[in-house]
């Protein structure tokens, strides 16, 4: 068994399941929003704002945002552990990979806070 402490869960299976479940949520959210926009031509700002003031839409949007963040983490973690490795670029890889992963995590967290502010902000 290969040891890893930076992936999302502690098991490969957990990450794999999270990536698939989050993909389904993102697909559902995309289909819903596309459907809503297509069936509401001439949409006004008030209608759009009204949609996002409903609690279920806020919950759905937050779920989609959390799915996006976890999906992105699993994917980008794979990318960084594929290409930013000691095997590829020598000893500099480990600190560089940790810096990149920290950056991705911080940015994701910031987007989460920002998303919550938008969804529950003054509307």
């Amino acid at each position: 068994m290969v040891t890893s402490v930076t992936n999302l869960g502690r098991s490969g299976l957990f990450d794999w399941v999270v990536q698939r479940v989050s993909a389904v949520v993102l697909l559902a959210y995309t289909v819903f929003l596309a459907g809503y926009l297509l069936t509401n031509s001439g949409l006004t700002f008030n209608e759009w704002q009204g949609l996002f003031q409903q609690n279920w839409m806020r919950a759905f949007s937050l779920l989609a945002l959390l799915s996006l963040i976890t999906h992105a983490w699993v994917g980008l973690w794979s990318v960084t552990t594929d290409y930013v490795t000691v095997r590829q670029m020598g000893a500099v890889a480990t600190p560089l990979r940790l810096i990149l992963q920290s950056g991705i995590a911080l940015l994701s967290f910031y987007y989460l806070v920002w998303g919550i502010q938008i969804l529950w902000g003054a509307g």
Binding site: M1, V2, S4, N7, S11, G12, L13, W16, W77, S78
Partner: peptide, 12 residues
């Protein structure tokens, strides 16, 4: 199976 359940062995 326990030996394979890490993010690299199978899930790469």
């Amino acid at each position: 199976l326990a030996e394979l359940d890490d993010p690299f062995s199978v899930f790469r």
